[in-house]
Amino acid sequence: MIVRIMGEGQVRLDDGHLAELNKLDDELLTEMESGDGPGFRRTLQALLARVRDLGEPLPDDSLEPSDLILPSPDATLEEVQELLSDDGLIPG
């Protein structure tokens, strides 16, 4: 699967990592719903760090269609809320 981190680029990520990423996504959703700004920021950074760690960066000139689009590291709680689906940022 191809994951885009807004403002950074794309990484190729094995589908087998989705369960781990979904745990962080669920935590992020809970923090957003409760208005926990510091928790939201911490979990967003952890989610993006895991995607970077687990994924293989694609070349900057590669234009693959993205299966997932994640917010930039400096996105606000309100900006992330606009990206959410019923399942959070990561479906499943």
Rank of each mutant, 00 (worst) to 15 (best):
Leu70Lys: 03
Ser62Thr: 15
Thr76Ser: 15
Gln81Asp: 10
Gly55Asp: 10
Gly37Ile: 06
Thr30Gly: 05
Ser66Ile: 02
Thr76Ala: 13
Pro59Asp: 15
Asp87Glu: 15
Met1Asp: 04
Leu28Arg: 00
Val3Lys: 07
Val80Asp: 08
Glu27Gln: 05
Pro91His: 14
Asp15Thr: 01
Asp53Thr: 05
Asp60His: 12
Glu82Lys: 11
Leu48Asn: 06
Gly92Ala: 03
Asn22Val: 09
Glu82Gln: 13
Asp53Phe: 14
Leu24Gln: 02
Pro71His: 00
Thr30His: 04
Val3Phe: 10
Asp61Phe: 06
Val11Ala: 03
Gly35Asp: 01
Ala49Asp: 07
Leu54Ala: 12
Ile2Thr: 03
Gly35Ala: 00
Gly35Pro: 00
Glu64Ala: 15
Ala19Thr: 12
Met6Asp: 15
Asp26Pro: 08
Pro57Cys: 13
Arg12Lys: 11
Asp14Ser: 05
Thr30Lys: 09
Leu83Tyr: 03
Gly88Phe: 10
Pro57Leu: 14
Ala46Glu: 15
Asp14Gln: 04
Leu63Lys: 11
Leu68Asn: 07
Gly92Arg: 11
Ile90Gln: 14
Leu24His: 02
His17Cys: 07
Pro91Met: 07
Arg52Met: 05
Val51Pro: 01
Leu28Pro: 00
Thr43Lys: 04
Pro65Val: 12
Asp53Arg: 13
Phe40Cys: 02
Gly88Asn: 05
Pro91Asp: 14
Val80Ile: 13
Asp60Lys: 09
Asp86Trp: 03
Ala19Asn: 02
Ala19Gln: 09
Ile2His: 04
Asp86Ala: 09
Asp15Asn: 06
Glu56Ser: 14
Glu27Lys: 07
Leu29Cys: 01
Gly16Ile: 00
Asp86His: 09
Ala75Met: 08
Val11His: 05
Leu13Gly: 02
Ala46Ser: 15
Asp67Leu: 07
Ser66Lys: 05
Ala19Val: 07
Leu44Val: 00
Asp25Gln: 03
Met1His: 02
Pro65His: 13
Pro91Gly: 14
Ser85Phe: 05
Arg41Gly: 05
Gln81Arg: 09
Glu33Ala: 06
Leu44Tyr: 08
Glu56Val: 11
Ser72Ala: 15
Leu77Asn: 09
Thr30Pro: 01
Val11Gln: 02
Leu70Val: 04
Phe40Trp: 06
Asp53Cys: 07
Ile90Val: 14
Leu89Met: 15
Glu31Gly: 03
Ile90Asn: 12
Ile2Met: 10
Ile90Ala: 13
Gly35Trp: 01
Val11Phe: 08
Leu54Arg: 10
Asp61Val: 14
Gly16Lys: 01
Leu28Trp: 01
